[in-house]
Amino acid sequence: MRVMVFVKATEDSEQGMQPSPELSQMFIDMGKFNEELVNAGVLVAGDGLKPSSFGKRVAFDGPSRTVIDGPFAETRELVAGYWIWDVKDMDEAVEWVKRCPNPMFGPSDIEIRPFYEMEDFGDVIPDEAAAIHDGVGEKLANR
């Protein structure tokens, strides 16, 4: 199964990267962890994200679209980085996350979310919607 693993932001990470021996060490530790993930055939993709001060949001409400500039307030709910992993099940994903070096200097969270898989859509999407979905796909592909 494929999971997305979110490294959540902290007040520190929202400040951007400040060069320091601690940060250098974290990069080394994180590099080793990534290597372990690669060697186990688990790591599919991953990247770090700049602080939310570089980000924008578009708020939806009926027909209106409002653009909001970062930074955003609810720091601990923001995403600072992500991986995509291929694992056998959620238990395995949890054990891999436990092996991750502390991604932040203070307390922080890492969240694991499974992707929807082919079979999950079977009963949820009506045939009509699936057909539209495929039609859109066809148009995109034909462009």
Binding site: K88, D89, D91, E92, V94, E95, K98
Partner: peptide
């Protein structure tokens, strides 16, 4: 590390190793 791990967690560690 986490105390009192469940059997499922232990088996997941074992599968990795």
């Amino acid at each position: 590390m986490a105390a009192d791990p469940s059997h499922r967690a232990i088996e997941a560690v074992f599968r990795i190793e």
